[in-house]
Write a protein that binds this DNA or RNA. Structure first.
Lengths: 110, 110
DNA sequence: TCTATATTTCCAAGATTATAGAAATATGAA
DNA sequence: TTCATATTTCTATAATCTTGGAAATATAGA
């Protein structure tokens, strides 16, 4: 993970429709959903949906699987983990920081 | 946390300069850094830096603290936690999912 | 008060992104 | 092969975002 990749990942999620798609797929689990099903649930036009799925796929946040005429998309949980690792890298100068030590650093990075 | 807020948060981080600022502040810890110090380290023009600090502050990702003539910014770890909670809400339909069960869901959401 | 330093606001130009209609492509079934 | 369904690509328009120079504002010290 590097800055460029992280920005692509974050930008992929920083959009109403794409965030909704991602969250829907996270909730759906490994099986995922076909494009048509996603479109129905979120009420998004074909072209728009396809555009956003491409963005998420390109970022590696979702996986694509073909099954007959249907294409299933599912969340890629690993990629999110990579991102989180990058964001909290070397937190607090690598010092051990206890929740009790300071309010602003309560057990999220440490 | 709701979709609108989450998008604002993600958009705040989905930009080279802002991600660099945020990561720098995460690494720096609760003390944070003054605007001038951030500008020096990242080599960003005053106006640009101020613009991005405002965005991050507005998103609640960083905290602002005045100390004499200096204004210190520091990472708000709690807000990042809120975001993560929202992203992984109801993962895998709420079912227990073991890493061993399926590759795509390896211990990140469960 | 006056001066120097720190930070923000204003502004305009350039770059990027989102949207959906229409056409193109891909797959399976008859 | 022919047809129906599923999904993607093409395209143009509209909207939003990023940048940094210059001016404005805020604070501390002399």
């Amino acid at each position: 993970m590097n800055t460029k990749t992280a920005v692509i990942l974050l930008a992929a999620l920083a959009q109403d429709t794409r965030l909704a798609i991602y969250r829907l797929l996270v909730q759906e689990g490994p099986e995922g959903l076909a494009v048509g099903q996603i479109g129905e649930r979120l009420e998004v036009a074909n072209a728009t949906l396809s555009f956003h799925l491409k963005e998420l796929t390109h970022a590696g946040l979702i996986n694509r699987r073909q099954d007959g005429r249907f294409i299933y998309y599912s969340a890629n949980y690993e990629q999110m983990n990579n991102l989180l690792g990058f964001m909290t890298e070397n937190c607090c100068q690598g010092q051990a920081c206890e929740p009790s030590d300071h309010k602003s650093c309560d057990n999220s990075c440490c």
